[in-house]
Design a binder for these strands. Structure first.
Lengths: 300, 300
DNA sequence: ATAGATTGATAAGAAGCACGCATGAAAACT
DNA sequence: AGTTTTCATGCGTGCTTCTTATCAATCTAT
């Protein structure tokens, strides 16, 4: 039994006439006769009572009609679904975000995809570290990753999303907290709360190099795993911190974000696989590009 | 998209290995590769990520798996159903019964078919007249008909079911009602209740010819359409009647069935189409033959 | 009743498709 | 580096399906 035979069969059921059914199928009449006959032979039962004057389904023919319709309809659904997947209008896409994009880009992307690509199911994870994101994308755990720092890996395509200035995170009661802007130099004596070291987070190196340019090394460093924790630590008075401007989305009592006098920028990047890329992931990638660009934390 | 391709596809999904899947399908490996590739080309989307070391379904492949399973399962159900129809284990069979078989053979057949051929749906009609039964069978309204009288029609195959003696139907207060048997001659003066004339019922002619052999013509005739009505009329005192012995199944207050002294027999016949016969109808036909034979009203 | 029209079945040749074999290329293991 | 495993490709073959031509049966019309 093949779908083609069932399509022929259904046409004949609906037309009750070999000639017309064959015309509708764009085949010659003998082809239809043969295929119906073969179907009957395979199933071991007559499907039509036919004379030169009348063609009508037998009981078996009537019963088979239901199955044939169900099969052809299911095929059509499969075809439509595959088409959606092929055009990127459906699918499951998993995206990983580093900590400092978790509270700003992630929710925007989630909202936009839900609105514009309703067929796509998102699988979002935030507060991740660049190394695991890179490996995750290469390994297939994530289709896309929003990372920071120059990532150059084989099999990975990395495109810039935006560049944003660093801002200082200060406890609300800090003497500098009310200033319109602070110079990095003024934080020289402060203990710092930073993202993980050992190149697990690119922010760690970025913050330390900024301090170095300002002519000092932080007197003490407290490492925390997540950006949310970092802000909480600052609120608790464990020190100060430098974060990309968009982290301001994460507002918390007892914490103030103050722009830096120095032009220190960090880049936000989108990483995707070179091979094994899905159309749905491409669609989501372009949404991410728009979401990151149209943000308060954009360049300048 | 063809079912063969989907079967290949499913084998590959399950084996995740072209060689093994091909072996399971009893085809060479290149054939499988080509068919999968063609399916991918037709659907416009990659279904497997394949290297020389690993084969695994893409997301599209995973999604298609559900559809493919559904399609193959539905095909199997269709095949099984067609097989049942072909072997006569399923189907719808309509059987028409003449009046005098309605209260005896019909319920037996109904019960037996339900018990022995649970897949067959019966469509039973009783209290019909031979002419409409014959036309009904030829026209396809009925697959089988239980009739009386010698029916010889083109396109109809008629086989004897049984022969049964006529018995007299008398009102309970009738002087002859208590006799172990009555001679037809003794009913000469009685008004008769009979089945329809004008050869619409074969019983009409049968009863009158029996009377003629006994040397009389009934003084009056009341025609009724249904056997049940006939018995009711006798109970109401409108006259006496002759019916096949099996009508005794229809017992009614105020009515007695008394055997005839004369050996007057009527035949019960099974009529079926010569062409356009279904296996299910054949199965039911053999049930009818058994039910009619193993009856109190059987010959002798 | 005979002729013509309609319609499905059949036969034979052509076209298309799937298949098998041989082979190639890439990746993993020794 | 050599060997093995495994999927892809090219080509020839055979089966399947299609088309054309024709037949047989049935209905219609004169």
């Amino acid at each position: 039994m093949e779908l083609r035979q069932l399509r022929y069969f259904l046409a004949l059921v609906e037309e009750c006439h070999f000639g017309r059914a064959a015309a509708r199928l764009h085949v010659a009449q003998p082809a239809l006769s043969q295929q119906i006959k073969q179907l009957e032979r395979e199933l071991g039962i007559q499907l039509f009572n036919r004379s030169t004057r009348r063609v009508e389904p037998t009981e078996a023919g009537h019963r088979l009609t239901d199955y044939a319709r169900a099969l052809v309809a299911e095929e059509e659904r499969a075809r439509v679904h595959m088409r959606e997947l092929a055009t990127g209008h459906a699918g499951r896409v998993s995206v990983g975000f580093i900590g400092t994009a978790t509270y700003d880009v992630l929710p925007r992307v989630s909202r936009t995809v839900r609105a514009e690509l309703p067929g796509i199911t998102m699988d979002l994870r935030g507060e991740l570290l660049t190394p695991e994101l890179v490996e995750g994308v290469l390994h297939g755990t994530y289709d896309l990753a929003v990372v920071r720092g120059a990532v150059a890996e084989d099999g990975l395509r990395v495109t810039p999303l935006r560049s944003e200035p660093l801002v200082a995170v200060l406890p609300a009661h800090h003497p500098l907290a009310d200033r319109p802007r602070v110079s990095l130099r003024e934080l020289a004596g402060e203990p710092f709360v930073v993202h993980p070291s050992q190149s697990r987070s690119s922010m760690y190196a970025r913050v330390l190099s900024a301090c170095e340019r300002a002519g000092f090394r932080p007197v003490s460093l407290t490492e925390v795993g997540e950006t949310a924790t970092l802000v909480v630590f600052v609120a608790a008075g464990h020190g100060v911190a430098l974060v990309p401007r968009s982290v301001r989305s994460l507002s918390l009592d007892g914490v103030t974000y103050v722009p830096l006098a120095e032009p220190e920028y960090v880049d936000l990047l989108l990483a995707r696989r070179v091979h094994r890329t899905s159309p749905a992931a491409d669609q989501v990638a372009s949404v991410i590009e728009r979401c990151a660009a149209g943000t308060a934390g954009s360049n300048v």
